Computed example of a mutant assay.
Amino acid sequence: MPAPAPDRPNFGHAAGIPTGHFRFIAIDVETACSDAASICQIGIACVQPDDGIETFSMLVNPRMRFDPFNIRLHGISPDHVADAPCFNEAIGMLTPILNPHALVQHSNFDRQAVTAACRSCGMEVPDWRWTDSVTIARRAWPELKGNGGHGLANLKKRLKLDFHHHDAGEDARAAAMVVLHAERQLGLPFEDLLKPQPRKTVAAKMTLEGDPAGALAGSVVVFTGALQMSRTEAAMLAAQVGMCVRAGVTKQTTHLVVGNQDLTVLAGHDKSSKHRKAEEMREAGHPIQIIGESAFRALVAEENSISRRTAGQTIG
């Protein structure tokens, strides 16, 4: 069923475009066809200092064909844009508000479309500060990888967002809401979300072979969550008693060590994806042990103690 056609804004001037200083602005575009330059709607969502969101959208006449698929997707047809400004006129109206702000797009499509449209019109591509809310969402909810992903449709369901997908103004507002949710999830302001993350150490996803002479040789352990000790330390302790350390839960996993911190997330789950998978495997009859960090420490200490006593008896 086609999306409802958006209301026609006043195309004669820039009335209605938000003004002022905002924390950041999310932007989204819809296109008329497979050509990325065929922008037929631009939407912006301006996030105020109190996190209120002011949304504006306008239709654009791309002056090129409309594909049936695109019309079905967003509900915009050639008739809707007949009196709308062309892209260079529309972008001229929006440039004063967009230039001073960091811009958020959900995936890199919007930047690519703006770049293509500028080049199609013979315009210089604006030197805007772009960031991607998909990248921010991956950082905030890593458990969604392989579990629906970080597209707006899945985030709408997981975060219980209320918006009409494939309307530029609504999708821009959704991207802004994703960032606001991520700020709360990670406890970081928008400016810190823009900072490059340090490269993950090998320990974060390390695999390590266990000591074949260890008391737990043949066991396979996986860690999830933030432990009190470092992942490197935990992996080394496990390997010393014979446990092989792996990054993900598989049929070979015998132990899952869950960090003692609160694992509650906003994405509709109270456990990590590794934890949920381990529980499903256990319910299916797989003999996997799910333990906390304190129990892991006790297990390692006990096996080390047994090994020392055994070694002492052998020497004696």
Rank of each mutant, 00 (worst) to 15 (best):
A45E: 00
C86T: 13
D35E: 06
K145R: 12
I136R: 00
F56W: 13
G225M: 05
V47C: 03
D132P: 03
T135G: 06
R63T: 13
M229Y: 04
A204T: 08
F22T: 03
L216N: 03
Q48P: 11
A182W: 00
D127W: 11
T201R: 13
G218E: 07
L193R: 02
E283Y: 02
P142Q: 07
P2C: 07
R184Y: 08
H164Q: 05
N147L: 04
C46L: 11
V257K: 06
K156W: 12
E293F: 00
P85F: 06
V257F: 00
A239S: 08
R231T: 01
G20Y: 12
G92S: 13
C121S: 14
V300I: 12
L208S: 03
H106G: 05
H275D: 08
F223W: 01
S273D: 01
F24K: 02
L193T: 06
L237Q: 11
N147T: 03
K274F: 06
D270M: 02
V245A: 09
D67T: 15
R184T: 02
Q313R: 10
K160S: 13
R8D: 08
H74K: 05
D7A: 14
G52Q: 10
P4V: 15
R199M: 13
A301M: 10
A84T: 15
M281G: 00
N70R: 09
I306D: 10
I42P: 13
A235P: 12
C118M: 11
D67A: 14
R129S: 12
S219F: 00
P4S: 06
D7Q: 11
M93Y: 15
I315N: 10
H80Q: 08
M236D: 08
E124W: 07
P62K: 14
E54L: 14
V60M: 12
L186N: 08
M93K: 13
